[in-house]
Design a protein around this nucleic acid. Sequence first.
RNA 1: CGCGGGGUAGAGCAGUUGGUAGCUCGUCGGGCUCAUAACCCGGAGGUCGUGUGGUUCAAGUCCCACCCCCGCAA
Length: 307
Amino acid sequence: MRIVFMGTPDFSVPCLRRLLQDGHEVVGVFTQPDKPKGRGYALTPPPVKTEALQHGLSVFQPKSMRDGEALGILKELRPDLNIVVAYGKILPADILNLPMYGSVNIHASLLPKYRGSAPIQWCILNGETKTGVTSMQMDEGVDTGDMLLHAETPIPIDMTSGELHDVLSEMGAQVLSDTVRAIEAGKLQAIPQTGETCYAPMLTKTLCPIDFTKSALQVHNQVRGLSPWPAATAELAGKRVKIFKTALGGETSAAPGQIVACSDTIDVACGDGHTVCISELQLEGKKRMSAHDFLTGHSVTAGEYFQ
RNA sequence: CGCGGGGUAGAGCAGUUGGUAGCUCGUCGGGCUCAUAACCCGGAGGUCGUGUGGUUCAAGUCCCACCCCCGCAA
């Protein structure tokens, strides 16, 4: 099977690897253009590009998929199937429908819930207890295509987005492998998406500041949903602190935001009379470290407030 | 040349107007205790990111270059 792979971030990499491992002929890889990233605006290639080049694959990084040029390239590649995994661009119908088997997408949620670009994080932010990966036959809408296969996984109460990302990334590769095999065998039935839908938009920094008047569970979900990126934040003694890891604590009568204990973890009172126990954090300009290490060098005392 | 913070004992930090380093945790030994993550006493452990650089009688502390880490912004 001649396959064109379209993907960009780390999440896509296991899928690409799996296609190669399964012996498919990856005739081309589309990925986002290199972008200025990080300090000094160093031009950084997306992870899929790096991986593709290591395997000697042809890489294409068009700015637009709608100007005819991309379609021309695709025609020359003559794929039997397009595989799209977190590519980051909305594809027009002529691109999607060019291959004999059309285009298949791997999405990190149980569709039709959590369509959009940040399904992993929103599942955790909303406190979902299970999620999964779905493959679908793409149409022009955003994650609205008919569903092919899916796999489920529970979300433990302390799992972070980063951890779930890695799990779903591998699961996605497996679902993809199964999907392609089933397509080749011609025994796959597409199921229209029905039922409750919701949308998982891109994360923004406005989600980061913690409001300790919310319940401990809400704060905890915010922290793990935004961990490791972009990370929930709070202010302590005028400095911004990123918070990466918390656990649900016991009851307290302290005011929201007040630190009630700081021996091994930093326990903060929330709005519902319970605490969250911070175990991993990062002060602006400093490295990420455990609460224990943080407390060793910084004098934090019970009674202080997070804002 | 996007803006900014930082590299000092295993870890996290301090180090004032330049005079060869200190705190907390950990660690090792001893003590107290029914017991302990608690407490007491004592010890080990650092060529202060690199340059065999510059200034100086003297630099962790000032100047220069380079390497690395991090926050913002993208």
